[in-house]
C-alpha cells in the first residue's frame, strides 16, 4: 500500500507543479481579449464552417489493431515476469501466443489495413 501512497502523493505534486506555474501566468499576464485576438487562428483567413471534421476510417482501424495488441500484451507481462520459473514447455506456450499475435498482424497487413492512403 505504501507504494500507492507514494504514487498518489507524487501524482498530486505532479499536478501541482504545472498548475502553480499556470496560475502565476494567469495572475501576471494581462487580460485584454478582443474579437480579433480570440478569433480562431487560421493563417489569417476567416475560419469557415464547422470545426467538427469527419475523420478517416484509418484512424479507427489503427486504434483497433492497437487495442488488440494492448490486450495481448496484458497477458504477456505476467508470463514474462514468471518466465524464470517456467519450464521450457510453458515458455513455448507463451511463444505460441506471440505467434498467434503475429498472425493477426500479418492478416491486417495483407488485407491492407495498415496502409495509410
Amino acid at each position: 500500500m505504501n507504494n500507492w501512497l507514494y504514487i498518489a502523493i507524487f501524482l498530486f505534486v505532479a499536478v501541482l507543479f504545472p498548475t502553480a506555474l499556470v496560475v502565476v501566468g494567469l495572475l501576471l499576464g494581462p487580460k485584454r481579449p478582443n474579437p480579433i485576438k480570440t478569433d480562431t487562428y487560421e493563417c489569417g483567413v476567416q475560419t469557415w464552417g464547422e470545426t467538427w471534421v469527419q475523420f478517416k476510417i484509418q484512424y479507427y482501424l489503427f486504434a483497433l489493431v492497437f487495442l488488440v495488441f494492448d490486450i495481448e500484451v496484458a497477458f504477456l507481462y505476467p508470463w514474462a515476469v514468471a518466465y524464470k520459473a517456467l519450464p521450457l514447455f510453458a515458455v513455448l506456450e507463451g511463444v505460441l501466443f506471440i505467434v498467434l499475435l503475429t498472425a493477426a498482424l500479418i492478416y491486417a497487413w495483407r488485407k491492407g489495413a495498415l496502409e495509410w492512403s
Binding site: Y60, V68, L101, Y107, A113
Partner: peptide, 20 residues
C-alpha cells in the same frame, strides 16, 4: 490463455473485414 489469443485474432480479422 491460448483461446484468448485466438479470440483476439478473430476479433481483429472481423474488425478488419467489416471496416476495411
Amino acid at each position: 490463455f491460448e483461446v484468448a489469443s485466438v479470440l483476439l485474432l478473430a476479433a481483429l480479422i472481423g474488425a478488419v473485414f467489416v471496416a476495411w
